[in-house]
């Protein structure tokens, strides 16, 4: 009997220890990756890198200015496609979709769509836009990213608009304000910071995407002349340089990765900040 008690106690201790170790071990790749990107990337990070065009192999200097601009352009196009659909669909699901089969289907489809591999979305955008227009373009890349944004924004908007207490709606109706005005000027206003959180999170997610851009926005070594032109992006540029055999390009890939990481992580952090704000408002 005593033996069994010791066995139980030691199993307990071992398993609890293992769970803690798992959490600790997961930190190792994270710290290694962040440190390595920071150290390697910092060597080339200067004003030239952020403001000049890429140079051919062997020519010193050069940077990723066009790629940074390209990423911003792509995110803007994606936002124009993805945000209106995502936010309004989210409002529908939260305000009208409590017990209704159509809403259930939309919710489920959005969940499933967010699991579709991004490279598949790239093929879709290629077939729909690049092929009929006969050239790679920022437009196609932006639309591919926009498609990816829709399900993410929908679900986060729904969750966050739902957090607005029902009593606020009732108070507004009691004042004789119609339902749609209530939703737009009272509910959405209250959930403003929450919705912004969702928007920022989805932007952070798509800004780091490479796969759907490879054959939609493609790449470009020069300043883009418009959204109908192939466009460089930070992610594709980092990929191209990373698999190149040239030391100088590989160094630039690290610096590009550092810039990308700073961009994505800072968007994520500000999303977190807005989320905290939104929660304190709702309480």
């Amino acid at each position: 009997m005593v033996n069994y008690q010791t066995y139980r106690r030691w199993t307990d201790r071992t398993m609890v220890f293992l769970c803690g170790t798992a959490a600790f071990l997961a930190g190792i790749p994270l710290v290694s990756l962040l440190l390595y990107v920071l150290v390697q990337g910092f060597r080339r990070l200067d004003w030239t890198f952020l403001t000049s065009l890429p140079t051919p192999v062997g020519v010193s200097g050069g940077g990723m200015a066009n790629a940074i601009l390209g990423t911003i352009t792509l995110v803007l196009i994606a936002s124009c496609v993805g945000l209106p659909i995502g936010i309004f669909a989210g409002i529908y699901l939260s305000e009208y979709g409590k017990k209704n089969r159509f809403a259930w289907m939309v919710r489920f489809t959005a969940d499933v769509l967010s699991g579709v591999p991004s490279i598949v979305t790239g093929i879709v955008a290629y077939t729909l836009i690049v092929k009929p227009m006969h050239n790679f373009s920022a437009l196609a890349g932006g639309v591919a990213l926009g498609f990816m944004m829709i399900p993410i924004t929908t679900r986060t908007t729904e969750e966050l608009v739902k957090m607005v207490p029902h009593s606020i709606r009732e108070a507004s109706w009691a004042l004789g304000i119609s339902q749609w005005r209530t939703i737009l000027s009272i509910v959405v206003r209250t959930a403003k910071n929450g919705i912004l959180t969702g928007v920022l999170l989805s932007i952070a997610r798509i800004a780091g995407e490479t796969a759907p851009l490879l054959f939609t926005a493609f790449n470009n070594q020069f300043w883009p002349k418009g959204i109908n032109e192939p466009t460089a992006s930070l992610t594709v540029q980092v990929f191209t340089y990373a698999i190149s055999p040239f030391k100088d390009w590989q160094d630039q890939a690290w610096t590009g990765a550092l810039v990308l990481l700073l961009l994505v992580l800072s968007i994520n952090l500000s999303a977190k900040f807005f989320f905290k704000n939104s929660r304190s408002l709702l309480r």
């Binding site: 409002i91 529908y92 699901l93 289907m105 959005a110 499933v112 769509l113 749609w180």
Partner: peptide, 28 residues
């Protein structure tokens, strides 16, 4: 009219998600 329109409008955007899923499958 506003309530009716707003509801239909948001429902239309929600419908676009179903449409997007079908479009993805069909295009591929």
């Amino acid at each position: 009219v506003g309530d009716w329109l707003f509801r239909k409008l948001t429902a239309f955007f929600a419908f676009l998600i179903l449409f997007l899923a079908c479009l993805t499958a069909f295009t591929l």
